[in-house]
Nucleic acid binder design. Structure first.
Lengths: 194, 194
DNA sequence: CTGTTGACTCAACGACTGTAGAGCGAAAAT
DNA sequence: ATTTTCGCTCTACAGTCGTTGAGTCAACAG
């Protein structure tokens, strides 16, 4: 067995990231309240006290764990924005990051998660609304975002049986006319070539 | 001050209902985990131990508080079912019962609430799916239900700014073509008379 | 080699939780 | 009038939680 005398900085960075990863997973699966510092510490193979030492408090741990590498803003045109939204449902852009799942899982019970979710959703609504030409642009945008939210919750968090084993592409396909309708775009008769 | 020597049975029934009402409100606003027996007891102006004595455990209290007078099944035709769903968003049928809000608020973190929500949603999906003539009937139904879920969460639980002060009728109006599209119904060009 | 820093663990505290049992006083039964 | 029933409160227990401070040992600076 070779001994690997790892330097301090990299050790620190590694365990910190290990804790953050464990925290993300726990928060995403159990939500804020049901996730305990001890559970996270155990998953990261670390003493609970170390988690506190590194992150100060459970709340701060949550904040750090859910910080995202910034969401790329929705593209320019309305059609592109809709495609972008639909693509986010599935694997085209990669699976939904656990940080997002953690926020969504906790947003109905943890006030700070709710605030964070509201901020991000309001932002999406504003971006989408700017691309819609309609008196009710913002309302339409909000309903589009709410639709995406509902589908994601039903599929990823609630595990609805009817959505469990359906491919993301198929969902996006069926969702597209609906989103177009919400956006105020004339919806063509669906093709029966399914 | 007249003394009102209330009989035992009515006293019991009254305080029990008072506790259940307090529990519904607390569960709906704070979710299962953040709601404590003591909070419910205080709101019902009763000793915490009484809550246990009446309902056995916090879990059973939740179950009892959340029991609904049974949801009327969705009407016969597809069009009627959609209208029924849209009507449930707003005040036409009355505000969303607190029992439903309590389940929704808790379903992402409390396993039993999740199970209950899944059961009810799966049921709705089945009913709606039966009214849709399409190969993807169940999938379409699931996406319709998910949409309604998302709108309700965004509006009632997350309090999204863009949906906060919008009338239910207006939401239903904009949502209708989208639901029709999901149902696989040919969607006419929207009227610009709004 | 010597002393210092800092990553990490151990043990424990105080607060809060769900929950249980004994007891009080008024309504009901005798 | 006496006894029984039972709605209700008081007090307290055991467990878990977030959080803290002292202590240990290896990596670093001199």
């Amino acid at each position: 067995m070779e001994k690997t005398p790892t330097s301090r900085v990299v050790r620190r960075r590694r365990t910190e990231e290990r804790i953050l990863a464990a925290a993300r997973e726990a928060f995403a699966e159990r939500g804020f309240e049901r996730t305990t510092i001890r559970i996270v510490a155990a998953a990261a193979e670390v003493d609970p006290a170390l988690v506190m030492q590194y992150f100060g408090s459970k709340r701060e741990l949550f904040e750090r764990a859910v910080q995202m590498p910034s969401i790329p803003p929705l593209g320019g045109g309305l059609a592109e924005s809709i495609e972008e939204l639909l693509a986010r449902i599935g694997m085209k852009i990669g699976p939904i990051p656990q940080a997002s799942l953690a926020v969504m899982r906790s947003m109905l019970t943890h006030p700070e998660a709710a605030q964070g979710a509201r901020a991000k959703l309001d932002d999406q609504v504003a971006q989408l609304g700017a691309a819609i030409e309609d008196d009710d642009a913002e309302l339409r945008a909000a309903l589009m975002v709410a639709t995406m939210l509902g589908v994601t919750i039903a599929r990823q968090l609630l595990d609805l049986t009817a959505l469990r084993e359906v491919s993301a592409e198929r969902i996006a396909e069926i969702l597209r006319p609906s989103m177009n309708a919400l956006a105020g775009v004339d919806v063509p008769v669906r093709d029966d070539a399914g």
